[in-house]
């Protein structure tokens, strides 16, 4: 599926910094598309600690991370941002020059966004599946070790071992069970974080002899040429056993990795993007960066810093998007034109 879109700014990352940038850009009549690898907006706030209170958002003595995200989404509603969720930006190509920048942003789902400017608000990077530290696992990845299921049919007739105890692990146990020759679930304890109804469904299959559940942790892999033949399991008792298996699907949650950003030709410093503190522009004119992913002298990884950085970046982005328009600084409290944009005038 290829979708081609034209907009003013492509924002990479829909965490608090990226969301609030939509507001600051929107006040300047700049339209945005947001792209994020997660399934819903909010970044770390929604993915890592939605219920946790945050105490250092100005004007909010206490707000839950999810509550903050919901408020931000409400706040940017007047500007109708378009969200592309569950997609990872793979490429950022320059189509313009330093004076008239233009970029094509392409995601792993084939979405193409052509934009005047790119604003990277990618926080700690992309949330990617955690790789278990099993010796030699790299050799099997993509061939018989998978961290996500793209096509169910690929597992037809295979002996599939699923590792983990959360919803991803249990959902795939149940979804792959009809096609796989045999499903084995491995988990370190006889308790699961997954939804109780999936756990019950799994236990019924085990009781009926239709699949296996083994307590333990995977310690080694056996196979040849990237094709697994067995995995070594350390049981709770300490004894090790081999289990025949064609494919392994480990589900150990997500971790943040810089990912493809490293390939976009930007200067990087210890996996962070250096940005100037006046415009928050990167080493590539027209590509801006704000929030936890950037570094500059005195940088603090605070949500409020990300807000400030977005407001300043918007000023320079305005010059690229509307080169002939003079920008007059205005307050939302007093400007009738800003209030009209917000739908309150």
């Amino acid at each position: 599926m290829t979708e081609s879109i034209e907009t003013d700014v492509a924002i990479i990352g829909a965490g608090p910094a990226g969301l609030f940038a939509v507001f600051e850009l929107g006040l300047l009549d700049i339209k945005c598309h947001l792209i994020d690898i997660l399934g819903k907006p909010g970044g770390q706030c929604s993915e890592l600690y939605p219920e946790k209170p945050i105490y250092d958002i100005p004007g909010f003595p206490e707000v839950s991370a999810q509550g903050l995200v919901e408020n931000l989404i409400k706040q940017i509603q007047p500007f109708n941002p378009v969200f592309h969720m569950g997609e990872m930006v793979e490429r950022v190509e320059s189509l313009g020059d330093a004076e008239h920048p233009k970029f094509r942003v392409t995601t792993d789902a084939g979405t193409e966004v052509t934009a005047r400017c790119v604003l990277i608000a990618a926080g700690g990077g992309s949330f990617m599946p955690k790789k278990p530290p099993i010796p030699g696992i790299d050799a099997y990845e993509g061939r018989s070790v998978f961290y996500a299921v793209r096509k169910v049919e690929q597992f037809r007739g295979r002996r599939v071992t699923i590792v983990g105890g959360g919803d991803s692990a249990l959902d795939w146990v149940l979804n792959l069970h009809p096609v796989a020759e045999r499903i084995t679930l491995i988990h370190r304890r006889d308790a699961f974080r997954a939804a109780p109804h999936s756990v019950n469904a799994m236990r019924e299959l085990v009781a009926a002899g239709a699949m296996d559940f083994i307590l333990g942790q995977v310690s080694g892999l056996k196979g040849e040429g990237g094709q697994l033949s067995a995995l070594t399991l350390r049981k709770e008792s300490g004894e090790s056993v081999d289990i025949a298996c064609d494919d392994m699907l480990p589900f150990f949650g997500l971790t943040m990795k810089l990912g493809p950003i490293a390939d976009w030709g930007l200067n990087l410093h210890e996996n962070l993007i250096p940005a100037d503190t006046e415009k928050f522009e990167t080493s590539t004119p027209g590509i801006f960066a704000i929030g936890d992913i950037i570094t500059y002298p005195g940088k603090l990884k605070l949500i409020l810093s990300g807000f400030h950085e977005g407001a300043l970046a918007a000023q320079k982005i305005h010059r690229y998007v509307y080169p002939d328009k003079r920008l007059v600084f205005q307050y939302t409290t007093s400007s009738t034109s800003l209030q009209k944009k917000l739908g309150v005038g």
């Binding site: 955690k130 530290p133 983990g164 370190r188 308790a191 974080r193 942790q217 150990f252 949650g253």
Partner: peptide, 11 residues
């Protein structure tokens, strides 16, 4: 915490 330890390795 037990739930979260599921994400750790060599528990």
């Amino acid at each position: 915490e037990e739930d979260m330890l599921d994400f750790a390795f060599e528990v």
